[in-house]
């Protein structure tokens, strides 16, 4: 038994071992970089591929989803599919749906989430109205029939969160001058991204209203922005005393524009000078 370590300790075998280890490590580094490239590329989720309800953010999703397809099996409407290799979609084997083909029917019991064994679909989602699969966006106002002044209203009618996620906002029809436009407006705080509107849009081919991932569809207000009509609290605590604008000699008045005193007025005969065409009462003959 003592022979083995002695044999391993010879310089040749040690060099051999180090060489083999270096070779294996190098090969693994190359293969690992290729695999890492695949893994990071897979994050580029196409905008039209919508994840099931409760799906974790994409960067967490690929660590959690084991691609078992149990959510697909328990979807009663065959909405969900597993992505197939080489066919445009998300990472191979992960679940998604295409709203224009089959939208999410927003089951009350959310069977896909219940079926997920790993929590890639967050089990904390128990009310489907809280789902956030994406956000519907009226993306083509040039072709939307309602935007043209017709009464299509289909997206509004099919919305499971009708009058909250999509409302019709009445506007004046400038083209006819005599009619109204009932503009579909999506409200991000209620839209679940189910895609029923996109599915039912009557236009042939692409829909005028589409569900997009929120990361694509939404902008973000800067931290310091404040909507004064929603939040009455002033930005600063102290009262700011702005100067009053009053007629008469002072910082800003018609008798002495720019605060010039009457005797300092530019000469009217010179270029850039002027003579006021009126006189204000009680200002002592301003403007001469």
């Amino acid at each position: 038994m003592s022979a083995a370590p002695k044999r391993n300790a010879t310089p040749t075998s040690r060099r051999r071992f180090l060489q083999d280890a270096a070779r294996a490590a190098g090969a693994c580094a190359v293969a690992g970089m290729a695999l890492g490239k695949l893994a990071t590329d897979a994050r580029a989720l196409p905008a039209q591929a919508i994840r099931p309800p409760g799906a974790l953010p994409e960067e967490d999703f690929l660590a959690a989803c084991i691609r078992c397809g149990l959510c697909v099996r328990d979807c009663p409407y065959d909405t969900l599919k597993l992505a197939e290799l080489g066919i445009e979609g998300p990472a191979t084997g992960t679940p998604y749906f295409t709203a224009r083909d089959i939208p999410c029917e927003m089951c009350d019991d959310i069977p896909c989430v219940v079926a997920c064994p790993t929590g890639a679909l967050d089990h904390g989602l128990t009310n489907i109205d809280d789902a956030d699969m994406g956000l519907a966006v009226l993306i083509d106002e040039e072709h939307c029939l309602n935007a043209l002044g017709l009464r299509c209203d289909v997206c509004y009618r099919v919305c499971p969160v009708i009058d909250k996620a999509i409302t019709l906002e009445r506007r004046h029809n400038e083209r006819s001058g005599a009619h109204a436009i009932f503009m579909p407006i999506v409200h991000s705080d209620h839209c679940t991204g189910c895609g029923k509107c996109e599915k039912s849009c009557v236009l042939p081919g692409e829909a005028a209203i589409k569900v997009l991932p929120r990361r694509v569809a939404m902008a973000e207000a800067a931290d310091h922005y404040k909507l004064g009509w929603e939040d009455r609290n002033p930005m600063v605590d102290d009262i700011i005393d702005l100067p009053d604008r009053l007629p008469g000699p002072g910082t800003d008045n018609l008798a002495a524009p720019g605060g010039y005193l009457p005797d300092g007025m530019p000469d009217p005969s010179m270029d850039g000078g002027f003579t006021p065409s009126f006189e204000l009462p009680g200002t002592g003959g301003a403007g001469q």
Binding site: G36, A42, L62, A63, R67, T92
Partner: peptide
């Protein structure tokens, strides 16, 4: 690679 990319890497 799984740890570095935060994905289930071999499944790709």
């Amino acid at each position: 690679v799984s740890a570095l990319t935060g994905t289930i890497a071999w499944e790709f």
